[in-house]
Design a protein around this nucleic acid. Structure first.
Length: 270
DNA sequence: CTACGTACCTGCCAGC
DNA sequence: TGCTGGCAGGTACGTA
């Protein structure tokens, strides 16, 4: 589900409910996530005030009086803010009950997500090697160009590598490459600087448009208030195999790149 | 080091 | 109808 836009939409949705609030109680119904939830999570969080909520790539970091909460939505996770008496559903793994009666509820059927307390995650291997933020100033065409020299890897796999740039997952890699007119199978190291300018611009535009639309809901994703994301209506290639290209009208193609479903126009993308 | 492939987990859908 | 295989928005690890 969640790539950068969905995580950012989630962050913006829950932030006003969390910042400057205290955690009154914690319920863990299922601790077996990608890494097990701290076995002393409740003790760690109880009574703590949440100072702020940040995003790093697809991770969310909540700064507490003591330590930090590190959250990740995996493939199928979402966070919602619900009234505390809301009945828990299947796969509602963790609740943070807030002092104002609201409840932050973590739901994740596939359990690839994370809900972890730690003293300081900044130097943890999970976050250490991450590439720049795609919407930040360190990410530009020159960076992509320099970083890709000598790489034979397909540009799509390269873009989806969080050590290159964070936040670009399968949907937005497909969409960005379509907008930039680049064949997703092309070796990253064989793309010239002017084309990286187009690609950089496409990535930034698409991520921003997706955030504005509330993200992309294919199935699981819901925003913290329960609404869906509408960027799905703007997808040009993802999931549209055999449908006409919006630019040239030729049938879009599907391929397997780096083990992931990929969609592109064989005419518009070179 | 790079570039794959595979595993983790549940739900859903097409096809038999 | 009911089963089975394949696939799904992410990431980490093992292998050449």
């Amino acid at each position: 589900m969640p790539e950068l836009p969905e995580v950012e939409v989630t962050r913006r949705g829950i932030e006003p409910h969390l910042v400057d609030r205290r955690i009154a109680a914690v319920t863990v119904r299922e601790a077996r996530l990608r890494r097990p939830v701290n076995d002393d999570l409740a003790a760690r969080l109880q009574g703590q005030r949440i100072a702020r909520l940040r995003r790093r790539g697809k991770y969310l970091l909540a700064d507490l009086d003591q330590g930090q909460l590190l959250l990740h939505l995996g493939m199928s996770g979402h966070l919602r803010v619900v009234p505390q008496d809301t009945v828990a559903q299947r796969h509602d793994h963790v609740d943070l009950l807030l002092e104002d009666g609201n409840c932050l509820r973590f739901h994740d059927p596939r359990r690839f997500g994370l809900f972890l307390w730690g003293e300081d995650w900044a130097s943890d291997p999970l976050l250490q090697g991450l590439g720049p933020e795609p919407l930040g100033s360190e990410f530009d065409a020159d960076y992509l160009f320099a970083r890709s020299r000598g790489h034979q890897q397909p540009i799509k796999s390269f873009l989806m590598d969080a050590h290159v740039v964070v936040g670009v997952g399968n949907i937005y890699a497909n969409e960005s490459l379509f907008r930039a007119g680049i064949d997703p199978r092309r070796a990253a190291g064989r793309i010239a600087l002017p084309r990286f300018r187009r690609l950089h611009q496409a990535i930034v535009e698409i991520l921003q448009e997706a955030i504005t639309a509330g993200g992309t809901t294919l199935r699981d994703f819901t925003r913290p208030d329960g609404r869906k994301g509408y960027f799905r209506l703007s997808l040009a290639v993802y999931g549209r195999e055999e449908e006409p290209c919006i630019r040239c009208g030729k049938a879009l193609r599907a391929a397997r790149i780096g083990g992931r479903s990929s969609f592109y126009c064989g005419h518009c993308q070179r």
